[in-house]
């Protein structure tokens, strides 16, 4: 009995020893020398692997950062300035300041404004309904409402609002990774510069049709009437293909265009409620 135990112990120990020796030599032979800083940089990245930086994952981005001469064009939208600053410190480089972004939906075609003209009954996928036909309304540019963007969002920052049949972006969860931008077959989501207090002011429309058809399809469509263009003092507004666009980097949130827009297609979010006109005037004169 005792000899059995002894033989077992010896043979197993021998086996372990031989395996250890083999493992040691193999590990030496196949050793890959990797820049230790990659691990360090990866540790400060958010590990969301969202692809918002343009790389496949955080590891690839960390490699790119370590190899890069300068940080120009490299940015982690999720980690933001904080993560980029830490990475720059590790690698002894300077992180350029990149405006934090947030996603906005360039369509406000709720059933109330944009009457339904048919009922989509196929697979619930925007790409399919976009390939199939104009959509449930007469607007061939607007939101199809099947929620591809919501499914694409890995940060739980979007949901479908059943009343408006449009997706809603939750500002404090949105990290501007751009997954929804890629998911939308009609390119209705834009990443815009984040303003303080989550304020947003933009043309919530993507309709490039002429004024008449656009307005027939949707009462809040931008008709490209150029009224806003004329009122803007900062040159932030451009009009192309019958569609106005407000440049977020130039916009000062004066909100003059909002009241000027005949179809209310320019929308403002998170602003304090409008003061009486006299006060606004006084403020703009003083400010």
């Amino acid at each position: 009995m005792s000899s059995t135990i002894l033989i077992t112990i010896i043979s197993l120990s021998l086996l372990a020893l031989i395996s250890a020796v083999i493992l040691y030599f193999v590990a030496q032979k196949f050793k890959i020398s990797e820049d230790a800083r990659i691990d360090e940089v990866q540790a400060i990245l958010p590990a969301a692997n969202c692809g918002g930086c343009g790389f496949a994952g955080c590891r690839n981005f960390a490699e790119a950062l370590v190899q890069a001469e300068t940080f120009d064009g490299l940015n982690c939208p999720v980690g933001g300035a904080e993560a980029m600053g830490l990475a720059a410190k590790i690698l002894g480089k300077v992180a350029p300041f990149v405006d934090p972004l947030t996603a906005v939906l360039l369509c406000n075609g709720t059933p109330e404004f944009r009457p339904r003209t048919s009922i989509y009954n196929g697979a619930s996928d925007c790409r399919i309904s976009h390939n199939l036909y104009i959509g449930e309304t007469d607007c061939s540019y607007g939101c199809l409402g099947n929620g591809d963007c919501v499914r694409a969002c890995t940060f739980d920052a979007m949901y479908m609002n059943n009343a408006t049949e449009l997706p809603v972006i939750t500002d404090d969860k949105c990290v501007a990774c751009g997954a929804c931008v890629k998911a939308c077959p009609r390119n209705l989501i834009e990443l815009r510069k984040k303003a303080k207090k989550e304020r947003k002011l933009y043309v919530a429309c993507s309709n490039c049709d002429k004024g008449g058809p656009a307005k027939r399809a949707c009462s809040v469509a931008c008709t490209g009437c150029t009224k806003c263009l004329k009122v803007c003092e900062f040159g932030a507004i451009t009009i192309e293909n019958n569609l106005a666009y407000i440049d977020a980097t130039k916009c000062t949130f004066c909100r003059k265009c909002v009241s000027e827009c005949a179809t209310s297609s320019i929308i403002e979010i998170n602003f304090p409620s409008k003061k009486p006109k006299a006060e606004v005037l006084a403020e703009s004169v003083n400010g």
């Binding site: 048919s118 009922i119 989509y120 009954n121 196929g122 697979a123 199939l132």
Partner: peptide
């Protein structure tokens, strides 16, 4: 009443 639309 609106018509249903779906792919074939």
């Amino acid at each position: 009443n609106l018509l249903n639309i779906s792919p074939s």
